[in-house]
Each structure stands twice: as structure tokens, then as C-alpha cells.
Design a protein around this nucleic acid. Structure first.
Length: 358
DNA sequence: AATCCGGGGCA
DNA sequence: TGCCCAGGATT
């Protein structure tokens, strides 16, 4: 099988040279740009990453500048991109490289794996693109291309399957330019061998593709069905006191760590939105508040659950604000909201809040 | 090996 | 609106 695939690789590389998309991190000798882009590209599509990447590189043009930065500044630059531990791990790794490795990245796949935030995919991508090490970068695109090519019916969510594909592609890659091979496979998955509407007539691998021959493209890749996501109703209080608004910072170990939010929480069984917010404000901040009016309702989907946020404007009544749930709590001016990193779900709330207090 | 972390595209 | 997509860390 390895040999059959190898016969088609020159055609794949020729296709790549002609069809590859322009990207600001592509074909650069700067390892920092490749590294940052590979972290941003985890779970995230090219077009989403593009504007974030440009902005991030202008703020943090090299590994040392990110190492020196405040974590809050890094999270602010990442705001809206999601998976915020990526940003925190990238900075941890940048600090290590800056302080302990003389600003140089480890030059092998296996040692890259030791840096926080670099797993098998990202380490292979960097090792192959920057250091020309012949190691396959197996991402979701590559798994789709490979399982269709070979009609491999193993569940791609299993680590075993990834190990199998990694092993076969390790043989396939030898003798070809490793960075181009990996990027060509991923680019093919992204723009031709797409999940729903594969464009087989223009595919450089169609001559050897089992799925194309048998019309089974949409059966691959095989993966086990995701569990049904629970849905939660959330009450959120935007509390005002003397023109200032109350925000809380989330704990280090929590989901969305280091980001800020308005106090709130799950609406319990038998509880109204209003009761929930009064209770949550007391539990999370120690404050007694009065509700003014509802200003926003917004849905948000996380990986394993979804939420509906119900946001109410409130007035402070009594008590001193304490960080009972998060790591910090602050009264800030509405115009200062821009200085703090918030999770995406808060965008609508902040927008409605601005028009409400205007 | 199984589970936990966002958020966007598309039908 | 519901379904699909998907690397790394943690346990």
C-alpha cells in the first residue's frame, strides 16, 4: 500500500505548488510564525485564523516579546478565537524557549513534543516545515484523505488509528520534501477532499483512491457518534454601582481560565431567572442586588454542552464585593470593558449593555 | 483509553 | 436550528 501511495505523491506535490492558498505564515523561514500559526490552526480554520495571526504577530513579533508579555495581554489578543489554554500554553512554551533555550526551538519532533501545547500534530508540522524532518503531520484533513484513499474503516477517534496512519505515512513521506508533503495533504483535505462535497474530478490522488473508485467517499472517515449535549439555562447579573460595573476573573484551573465575566450561574430546578441571579450574586460576590430589567438573551454552544444566557441589569444594594467564586473581582467603568478579555458568549451581553447604559 | 476544553461552517 | 468538524491535556 505504501508503494502505491508513493507513486501518486509527485502528482500531489505538483497539484500543491499550483493550488496552495496564500497564507502569511507559509513559505517563511521564521519559525515563530510557523509555530504561532500551528497553534492557532488547532481546531480552527484558516480563514478564521488569518486576522488573528496578523494582529498577534504585530503585537508579539518574536518569541521573546511573547515571553515578556502579561498573560492578560495575550488572552486579549486571543479573545474570540476560543480554546484559551492554547494561548496560555503558547506563552508558557515561549517563556521556556526564551529563557532556557537561547530563543531557539528544539530541532527534532520528539523534543518539540516536550513543549506545552505541542502534541503529535503540531510537533510534526513544525519539525517538517521548519526543520525538514520527515515526520507526518496527521490532522483531521489528513485522516479524511487517508481513510478515503484506503477505505480504512477504523474509528479515527481512537489513538490506535492515529498511530496506524502515522506509521504508514512515515514510510510514504521518506524521500519527499516533508513540509510540502504534509501541507499538500492538509491542503487537499481542506479544499478538495472536503467532508461533505469532495471534488474528486480535480483530485490528484483520484487515480489510486479506493473511495473514488467505489463511490464510498461519504462513508469515511468513520468515527463514533458524539454524545448528546446537555443544555443549561444561565442567569447573569450586570451589576451597577455609582456608574461602575462589576466583573469577575475566572480561576486558573477553570474552563476559560484567566478570562473575565459577569457573575452568574445555572438556573436550578424550580428557580426563576430572577431568583437565580439574586442567589448567584450573593454566592459569587457576597452582594445584595436589585434587578432592574432583562437586557439580553443569547445562545452559545460549547463542545459538551450548550447554554442560554439570560442577562439582567442590576443595582448594588449592600455588601462589599468579594471574589468568592473567581480569583479576582473589580468595579470598572463601562468603557474599560474593552481592556479585559471576555469569552465569546459575552459579546452580545456587552453590546446590549452598552446601548442600555447609554 | 476516555474525557474534557471553544467556536465556526454549512445544509 | 441542528449537525459536523477536531488537537492537546488530564486522569
Amino acid at each position: 500500500m505504501t508503494e502505491l501511495i508513493r507513486t501518486a505523491i509527485p502528482g500531489l506535490l505538483a497539484w500543491y505548488r499550483v493550488n496552495k492558498r496564500e497564507m502569511p505564515w507559509r513559505d517563511t523561514p521564521d519559525f515563530w510564525k510557523v509555530w504561532v500559526s500551528e497553534i492557532m490552526l488547532q481546531q480552527t480554520q484558516v480563514e478564521t485564523v488569518r486576522p488573528y495571526f496578523t494582529e498577534f504577530i504585530s503585537k508579539f513579533p518574536d518569541v521573546h516579546s511573547l515571553a515578556r508579555a502579561e498573560e492578560q495581554e495575550v488572552l486579549k489578543a486571543w479573545e474570540g478565537l476560543g480554546y484559551y489554554t492554547r494561548a496560555r500554553n503558547l506563552q508558557k512554551a515561549a517563556r521556556k524557549v526564551s529563557a532556557e533555550m537561547n530563543g531557539q526551538l528544539p530541532k527534532s519532533f520528539s523534543r518539540l513534543l516536550d513543549l506545552p501545547g505541542l502534541g503529535p500534530y503540531s510537533a510534526a508540522a513544525i519539525a517538517s516545515i521548519v526543520f525538514k524532518e520527515p515526520v507526518p503531520a496527521v490532522d483531521g484533513n489528513v485522516l479524511r484523505v487517508f481513510t478515503r484513499l484506503t477505505e480504512l474503516g477504523d474509528d479515527i477517534s481512537r489513538p490506535q488509528t492515529r498511530t496506524l496512519v502515522f506509521g504508514i505515512l512515515s514510510d510514504v513521506i521518506s524521500g519527499f520534501p516533508p513540509g510540502d508533503f504534509n501541507q499538500a495533504m492538509m491542503e487537499l483535505g481542506a479544499i478538495v477532499c472536503k467532508p461533505r462535497q469532495p471534488d474528486c474530478p480535480v483530485c490528484p490522488l483520484n487515480r489510486i483512491c479506493a473511495s473514488h473508485k467505489n463511490g464510498t467517499q461519504l462513508r469515511f472517515p468513520v468515527k463514533k457518534k458524539a454524545a448528546v449535549k446537555p443544555h443549561h439555562l444561565i442567569g447573569v447579573g450586570i451589576c451597577m454601582r455609582e456608574g461602575k460595573v462589576l466583573i469577575a476573573k475566572r480561576h486558573e484551573k477553570q474552563m476559560l481560565a484567566g478570562l473575565w465575566e459577569f457573575p452568574g450561574g445555572k438556573i436550578e430546578n424550580g428557580e426563576t431567572e430572577e431568583e437565580c441571579i439574586l442567589r448567584e450574586m450573593r454566592e459569587e460576590t457576597g452582594l445584595t442586588v436589585e434587578l432592574v430589567r432583562k437586557i439580553a438573551k443569547t445562545d452559545h454552544a460549547f463542545t459538551h454542552f450548550s447554554i442560554t444566557l439570560n442577562a439582567w441589569l442590576c443595582n448594588w444594594v449592600s455588601g462589599e464585593a468579594q471574589p468568592l467564586s473567581g480569583s479576582e473581582i473589580r468595579w470598572i467603568l463601562p468603557e474599560e470593558l474593552d481592556d479585559y478579555p471576555f469569552p465569546k458568549a459575552n459579546k452580545v451581553i456587552i453590546k446590549e449593555f452598552r446601548s442600555a447604559v447609554k
